[in-house]
Design a protein around this nucleic acid. Structure first.
Lengths: 112, 112
DNA sequence: TGGGTTTGTATCATAAATAAGTCGTATATT
DNA sequence: AATATACGACTTATTTATGATACAAACCCA
């Protein structure tokens, strides 16, 4: 790929990645599942499981989320089954949003 | 890389990725920020922003989480600042867990 | 304690992800 | 309506992530 423009991750992003990995590891051990077994069930390699659990920022979203899904790790809501509902709701919200971010003369600094 | 073993993502994983993308998009538009501007702030390319918002499973965890962090999108808790605390707590829990998943004679099928 | 197993790290090739650029179109704003 | 801009879809070159493998060490159970 082209060289990534900037790979200085913020603390929040790093913590989030580490947290996801830690949750996956906890769930795996709780189920007494080996890294090898998780790898197979998630359709990944054992190497990748190890890296994701370590909180590696370079791993793919799909791989990490799939591992979480296999183990039942809650990603956004408590219940994994609720993710679908939240997605639908979020899409409704987005459909009401402007589709482009035009520069407005009227300053909209809506965070306070 | 080596050829990915299996790339059939589960519904949950796909929905989670799509939800994350939708939340990022919502936050970006709410702040009237262009894809270009988000890209710069997150240290990524505009192409990547578009893909992440579309819920692409192949995008890196770091890139997606960084975008979310820049926009203040809640990843696990409501407040982004709480991620650090949750990480610490999760690590405490993990330190008490067995470090290896050995096959036990006593079946532990603890999900019901 | 002994023995079989899991795990983490390192390395390597190669497929895939990324950045950068262009183009056509949709869409806010005036 | 006119206009300026953001957006999404492509394409291409380059870098990175991934899978496979090997090894040493840590670990858990008997």
């Amino acid at each position: 790929m082209a060289k990534p423009v900037n790979r200085n991750y913020s603390r929040t992003a790093r913590d989030a990645s580490a947290l996801l990995g830690a949750m996956i590891r906890a769930a795996r051990l709780h189920r007494r599942m080996s890294t090898q077994e998780l790898a197979e069930r998630a359709g990944a390699s054992r190497s990748l499981v190890v890296r994701v659990e370590a909180g590696d920022m370079g791993s793919g979203i799909g791989a990490a989320f799939e591992m979480a899904a296999v183990l039942g790790v809650p990603l956004f809501d408590a219940d994994p089954g609720l993710v679908n509902g939240r997605l639908a709701k979020q899409r409704e919200v987005n459909s009401l949003l402007p589709r482009r971010a035009f520069p407005t003369s009227v300053k909209v600094d809506d965070d306070f």
